[in-house]
Design a binder for these strands. Structure first.
Lengths: 191, 191
DNA sequence: TATTATCATGAGTGACGACTCAGGTTGTCA
DNA sequence: TGACAACCTGAGTCGTCACTCATGATAATA
């Protein structure tokens, strides 16, 4: 009962907080590298911590994955927000899209979880804000005439997920990634 | 030494041939339903056969997956060939593309293996002919002016795999599937 | 029909992974 | 500094899964 639902029970002890951070960092790296099938032991080892400690902070492997996803979605959302704020709206969406696909080449966990929003996979409710930002980027791009009006947010999310999946599992190199993205972007532009 | 490499050692005994078919059928269904992580036991049960029998015919789970993929790619290639033969070239590629994505909603194994052509996953060399047929469909579509000349076969394969992945893991319904495909097709048409 | 090589059976093996818990350690607070 | 709750440790439990093998069944052939 440390990382669980109820709000702010009590500040963690110093060593506990330190370990929690280490575990999250290690888990991010390990799962990004080997996918969500990587063992909890690997995470513990990478974090320099006993296996029991991992399970103290995250009672279930699912909880651990959830925590990582929450972090990552928050970071992505922030990035999208930044792009929406300053960058030229005509390309902000495309830039963000491309950057995300770029990342997926090294982020097994992310993508695999990102696409399964319908299922009961680790995700919590962090998809909402992410989706909202995509919607914002899309609206502005449409207002600027860079994307055809008929396109909806769920279509963009779907294409995004699909491209990430493809890039990840197919092992696309930067070149192929760029060329497929160009096709998708062309499709978003033209009727 | 039954399903292995060397050519045609000797005809299988009647019961053995029957079981082999049953196992292949069951494996196709089970892996399509639960993905390649499904257990070999499940396959045996579905086939109405003991676990040992499965391993007699396919010494390794990988061998079993390979056999299925070979079958499936052959069938897909045949379908593509048929479309290339009669259908109007301007839409044959799109039709085939859409049909494949359609299928993926229920074909976990297929897609997951289809995208990992670079890795050492179960696949054998059956991708070659499949790819060739895609190339043919693409060329004709380009000749008919339905696809922009610059598009290459690997881009189409990549997009195909990505869409299948997305449709599968994202649980897209027919509507979303249609709308994302429309975007991709538009991208293939326009510069 | 008798013979035999081929095949089927299914309990068993070993490896691995998620998760537990009894006992030792350490931060915190009076 | 002492006392204690919070925390860490890691060997162990339980379940699953790919794969094996000794034993029994059966199709093919003479």
């Amino acid at each position: 009962m440390v990382a669980s639902s109820a709000g702010e029970t009590r500040p963690l002890r110093a060593d506990a907080r330190r370990n929690r951070e280490r575990i999250l960092g290690a888990a991010g790296a390990v799962f990004a590298e080997h996918g969500p099938a990587a063992s909890t032991e690997q995470v513990a080892e990478r974090a320099g911590v006993a296996i029991g400690t991992v399970f103290r902070h995250f009672p279930t492997k699912r909880d651990l994955l959830q925590a990582i996803m929450k972090d990552l979605l928050a970071r992505l959302t922030a990035e999208a927000t930044a792009l929406a704020a300053d960058g030229d709206p005509a390309t902000a969406l495309f830039t963000f899209f491309a950057r995300l696909v770029e990342q997926s080449a090294n982020q097994k966990t992310v993508i695999e979880s990102l696409t399964e929003t319908g299922t009961d996979l680790p995700m919590a409710g962090a998809v909402g804000p992410f989706r909202d930002q995509i919607a914002t980027l899309l609206e502005r791009a449409q207002a600027a005439g860079a994307v055809r009006p008929g396109v909806r947010t769920d279509e963009v999310m779907a294409l995004l997920a699909a491209q990430c999946q493809g890039a990840l599992h197919g092992g696309w190199d930067a070149d192929l990634r760029g060329r497929t993205l160009a096709i998708v972007f062309a499709g978003l532009r033209h009727p």
